[in-house]
Simulated scan of single mutants.
Amino acid sequence: MHRYTLNLMKPLLLVVALFSLFSCSNDDEIDNLSETFFVRHENADMPAYVHGNATEKIFLIVLNGGPGGFGLTYRTKTFIETIEEKYAVVYFDQRGSGVSQGKYLEKEVTVDLMAEDVLALTKVIKEKYGDDSRIVLMGHSWGGTLGTATLLKDQDDFLGWIEVDGSHDPREMYSEYTTNHTKTANEQIALGNSVDYWETVLQLVDSVSPTYDEDNFFDLNREAFTAEEQLVEDDIINEEKWEDEIGVNYNVFMALWNSGQILKILTNNGLWENISYTDRLSEITIPSLIITGKHDLIVPTKFAEEALANIGSEDKELLVFERSGHSPMASEKELFAEKILEFIDRIK
């Protein structure tokens, strides 16, 4: 793993309703929280699953990828046995994700609104567990986009920011796909790895429009996942192994329906054509840890390097996981958990 280190709002009024499904507020239970509450904001009811040790009043909010992933996907055995042993983790089903519910107009669903949802969650945490609660925000993949948007609205309640293979610049994903697919294919062909496959990747790149095209975008996105599977097969990266609890905690049919809908809505509302936060990254001034897999083809490492260069914090660091693609928490689990704990331990 390579390590690169650089040492160098507005108030938001929200009406939030809190529905506790399991009450667990006694002091003698704070070291082993296991409860669910719903955040109601702008006609959406969004569940937050809280697990772990809150004796230090530190809460790690996890923003899933997608758009449309499931919050509890990230609650693996490694998270439970390491991170939750020391700190509380909040696995959040975003608007339109997991088993969140609501009745709202599609045209109203924007990244900005979903960032306000996250800020609503922080207010509920402080109301429920105490105003002295300290919050670290972590976003993976699409969660990196959402987390960036959240911090640009209000970062006062956050102790630190962890971006994992996330993109602050969805608008640039299309052009970076063509660039990175070409680069990776040529590298693998030069090494003699799965030459026939990588030549088909080059053919795909040659066939797509040079400017954004929705169908071409999703063709390139799907190929990125297939290409990472090929890298696993050729022993360039580790296989991703998720040990989730979706079967226990989710209505899977509802979660899959939500997933397809929120991706469609955000795409129709211009996520991949119009959203870019690159020019505003300097506004993020809290301690920041940026993590990327060296061989990430879904959100190429360019975005992590760009985040390191542009985030305005005097305390920022980039970690590159050598044997990972898009999800180091699933391909280098123990190392990932170790680095998350090191970061929180240092900034608390």
Rank of each mutant, 00 (worst) to 15 (best):
S282L: 10
L308F: 01
S288Y: 08
A304G: 09
W272S: 04
A304E: 02
K316C: 06
P300Y: 08
H295K: 08
S282I: 06
N274P: 01
F321K: 00
T292I: 08
A309M: 07
E317V: 13
G293Y: 05
L289E: 00
L318I: 06
S288Q: 07
E317L: 08
T301I: 14
D315A: 03
L281H: 11
D279V: 11
H295C: 07
V320K: 01
T292Y: 12
S313C: 03
E317C: 09
P287F: 00
H295T: 10
I291M: 11
P300F: 12
E306K: 13
D315G: 06
S282Q: 04
V299F: 08
S288N: 13
I291F: 10
N310V: 09
G293K: 10
L318K: 00
A309E: 13
E283P: 00
E322W: 04
F303D: 11
A304D: 02
N269M: 09
I291S: 04
V299M: 08
E306C: 12
L266I: 07
I298H: 03
A307V: 07
T278F: 07
E314Y: 14
I290L: 08
N268M: 04
A307G: 09
E306A: 12
T278N: 05
F321P: 00
F303E: 09
T301N: 10
I275A: 05
T301Q: 13
N274M: 07
L289H: 01
L289F: 08
I286L: 12
E306N: 13
K302S: 11
T267Q: 11
T285P: 07
S313I: 08
L308I: 09
N268V: 00
E314D: 15
F303R: 14
V299T: 13
A307F: 05
L318N: 02
N310L: 15
A307H: 06
I290K: 08
I286R: 00
R280S: 14
I275N: 11
N268P: 03
Y277Q: 13
N310W: 11
F303W: 14
P287W: 03
S282D: 14
A309S: 14
E306D: 15
T267W: 04
G270S: 15
G312A: 00
N269V: 10
V299G: 07
T278E: 10
L281R: 03
S313N: 05
G312Q: 01
T292R: 06
P287V: 01
N269P: 03
F321N: 00
D296L: 11
Y277R: 09
L297Y: 12
E317N: 08
I275L: 14
F321A: 13
R280P: 02
I291D: 05
I284Y: 01
P300V: 03
N269S: 11
L266D: 02
L289I: 07
E305A: 03
L266H: 00
T278Q: 12
V320H: 09
E273D: 12
P287M: 08
D315P: 03
N274Y: 06
Y277F: 15
I284C: 01
S288F: 03
A309N: 13
F303G: 14
S313H: 05
T285M: 07
E322L: 10
I298F: 01
E283I: 04
D296Q: 06
W272Y: 13
S276H: 05
T301Y: 15
N269Y: 05
L319Y: 06
N274A: 04
E314W: 04
Y277C: 09
L308A: 05
W272A: 13
E305D: 14
L271V: 05
